[in-house]
Design a protein around this nucleic acid. Structure first.
Lengths: 193, 193
DNA sequence: CGCTAATGTATCATAATGATATATTAGCGC
DNA sequence: GCGCTAATATATCATTATGATACATTAGCG
């Protein structure tokens, strides 16, 4: 494991730049705030954390063991780590990578399983509506805060992206259902003539 | 390599269900049609192709070697393969996985590098506008076709998804730039009072 | 007191990426 | 017809990422 090209270390450094973190708190933060556009597994987080310490980009603080009798390892970013983060921040971000399994099924299923695809789209719409509601709730919560600082701005912008994304995907699925209905009617007509 | 949970084999089967494929043609098809929402590497495609044959889901046709003197291996889906594909098609698709590096930078950079983030957003807008134009071109091409069959529908729906997606991301980035400008003005005011 | 959920660290088999190696052919300019 | 680049084609490998699992403690609930 060399970790010279992966992004994992930067998300760890980014989270540590806000406050010291444990492996677990990093995982939870990603699940809570970044879930919509990024994911990391424990299998990446813990080894990378060790590597960051090796490379002097993070440090484990004195309270390594025992907090309420429970083993916790708290990691803090170093100045070298902050510099590394800043350098990465200034580089042009990579093109995004998506894996939408539903689009695969739409592509391969419209020839043979129109009804199934229609059902998948229904579920997809539901899921996106739910996520959209969550995003809007979170945005409302942020607007209610008095603090108008920079950390708030980051949260607002990423949540806003979620809002745009979920809206678009929901709207697409509704449009797709309409097209599928048209196709079904077309097939029906062809049969009856 | 067991390939019992991965999705690679299904995209291979899906493409083979339309017509026989070589590893290379599969890679190109994914790059051309699915690039926006799915990607596969040669490192996955070739080993998986061999596995599909092992499992009786695909066959290599007689013309294994030599086509214009060049080695090509053509794979054809079997009935067992079609059944496997159909079963997968009927299962609820997994939740999509995205990796938008720019959102990471937005989240970590708004506290310290507002100008840099603004530049990243400009590039992001440009890239999404370009992709959007491509999608619209492709949709216009599809509408010009006489064939109104099912394979066309699949292409149309996936391209339409690209259109919705790229539009949303572009719109988000424009909105984000506005919010960043507001924040800058806020900071400026604070300094001057 | 026992149950479940949450906090916490850790590893491993499987899966996926990106780079690279190898070889042939097609087309282009000169 | 010679060299150049791009496209076609197969293949492997080191690195990176995922998902499942193991283990242990604590908090809260009935």
């Amino acid at each position: 494991m060399k970790k010279d090209t992966g992004k994992t270390r930067y998300i760890l450094l980014g989270l540590m730049s806000k406050r010291p973190q444990t492996g677990y708190s990093i995982k939870k933060s990603i699940e809570n705030e970044f879930r919509h556009f990024w994911q990391e597994s424990f299998g990446q987080i813990y080894p990378t954390l060790k590597l960051l310490v090796e490379q002097g980009l993070a440090e484990t603080t004195e309270t390594e063991i025992v907090q309420n009798g429970r083993q916790t390892i708290t990691y803090t970013i170093t100045e070298k780590g902050r510099a590394k983060l800043k350098r990465w921040l200034s580089e042009a971000p990579d093109v995004e990578k998506l894996r939408y399994e539903i689009l695969l099924k739409v592509s391969f299923g419209t020839a043979t399983d129109l009804d199934t695809i229609d059902q998948h789209l229904d579920a997809f719409i539901g899921r996106n509506e739910k996520a959209l509601a969550e995003m809007e709730g979170f945005l409302a919560f942020l607007n209610g805060l008095e603090d108008q600082g920079c950390e708030r701005l980051g949260s607002e912008l990423t949540a806003l992206c979620g809002k745009y994304l979920y809206t678009a995907m929901k709207d697409w699925a509704v449009a797709a259902k309409k097209k599928i209905l048209d196709q079904k009617e077309l097939e029906h007509e062809t049969k009856n003539t």
